[in-house]
Nucleic acid binder design. Structure first.
Lengths: 221, 221
DNA sequence: ACAAAAGTGTTAACTTTACACCCATGT
DNA sequence: ACATGGGTGTAAAGTTAACACTTTTGT
């Protein structure tokens, strides 16, 4: 047992925010403006003050660094390596959030911040241990997305069945038979046609669907 | 934004260690010897020093406060309420561990500590917010125990099929048909008979089984 | 008319459920 | 011989998997 060590630690929150844009799962990253790692990409987050709860901190990060409000998050993993931030012991608690791309388009307008949505298969070199944390979040994402209510957050309305199938193929890592997928998904009684069509793309236009108001929570796959 | 607040926080680790004794899932708790909450039960744990990793801290807790070694743990939830410890902001990171009851019987001999294994349906009044944390751990336990490798940690050898069924009935919250359960479990090809029988109980003695050496990771239920 | 993607139905294989009687042991 | 809990098989229902052609639209 060492004697002079302190029991005070610095904790930062990090947010792994995902969306789906035309069937592709993407994560929100910020461009780091200062050294160290200037120019690298990173997860949004902030240092936890001793007088605020985790939830309060997360809310503030969403408002000031992401430009969104009222996004529900799920706690993921606590990272505590001694050397994850050079010369400082900073623990990081990562949260996973989901937001639909329409909401993103409408609300997100933090002018002074350089951000980008990255395809989860094309994550750039990130600051600190954020590449590792991102991979961990993507892995946890799979457990989140099999749930019908999570899916509804990503696709509240006006999606095609193909887009949902694309998401499942990404998180499962293999292809699904279109006929079987549709039969199964429609039989869950979670969605209804909006009556609109997805025009403007090549090929036959697809029906657009929305999630029903009250859906029963359920795991697919 | 408040100004005078500090960015230094105290973090404690907590361990929710589970075992199964004759088909009953139990959790390991310590009796608190000092005020506040003197005499109440609590989860083992310790304050994290700034110069140790989470894993190092957990290892030490196992050795000094539980009397076991080399138990693999899985990180569960970080609790960050401001008032969870009176007058102090202490965050708690909870870990879930599994240990088979035979190992417990052999190794656990920390004389000076008053501990007890509690049936998870009969948790006593616990110190601080530990009742809440215990309930959270029990809920996370379900996700752990559906996995074949976790089950193997609880039952390395000399268990009856009925004991496994009991565990599943507890985590699922409903009864299973004995015939169907056996057929399914045996068909997984995870276990083999030891050749011994579970004598000394009323009724016909049950066959004893052990998990095979190399089993494929798989989720049941 | 061709390219592109949407939409659709049937059958076989597999998995899950429901269900009742006999067996081995101790008292 | 009775009480206790272990061990077993079969059929029906439900789910999943495999598989190919037609439709709608834009060019």
């Amino acid at each position: 047992m060492k004697d002079k060590s302190s029991y005070y630690n610095v904790i930062e929150t990090l947010i792994s925010l995902f969306t789906v844009d035309k069937g592709v799962i993407k994560i929100f990253l910020l461009r780091k403006k200062l050294d160290p790692y200037k120019g690298y990409w990173m997860l949004p987050g902030s240092i936890l003050r001793e007088d605020e709860t985790l939830e309060e901190n997360i809310k503030e990060v969403f408002e000031t660094k992401i430009g969104l409000e009222d996004i529900e998050v799920k706690q993921s993993h606590l990272f505590g390596d001694l050397d994850r931030i050079v010369n400082n012991r900073v623990l990081a608690i990562n949260y996973i959030g989901l937001v639909d791309f329409v909401t993103v388009d409408l609300k997100q307008d933090i002018e002074e911040i350089e951000y980008q949505w990255f395809n989860i298969n094309q994550i750039p070199k990130a600051a600190f241990d954020h590449n590792n944390i991102i991979l961990n979040a993507i892995s946890d994402l799979k457990d989140v997305l099999v749930n019908s209510n999570s899916l509804k957050k990503l696709f509240p309305s006006d999606f095609t069945l193909r887009e949902i199938q694309d998401v499942y193929e990404q998180i499962l890592g293999y292809e699904l038979d279109r006929r079987n997928f549709r039969k199964k998904f429609i039989s869950l009684d979670l969605i209804e046609p909006t009556g609109m069509m997805n025009d403007g793309y090549s090929g036959r236009p697809a029906k657009l669907y929305r999630f029903k108001d009250k859906i029963k929570e359920r795991d697919l796959f």
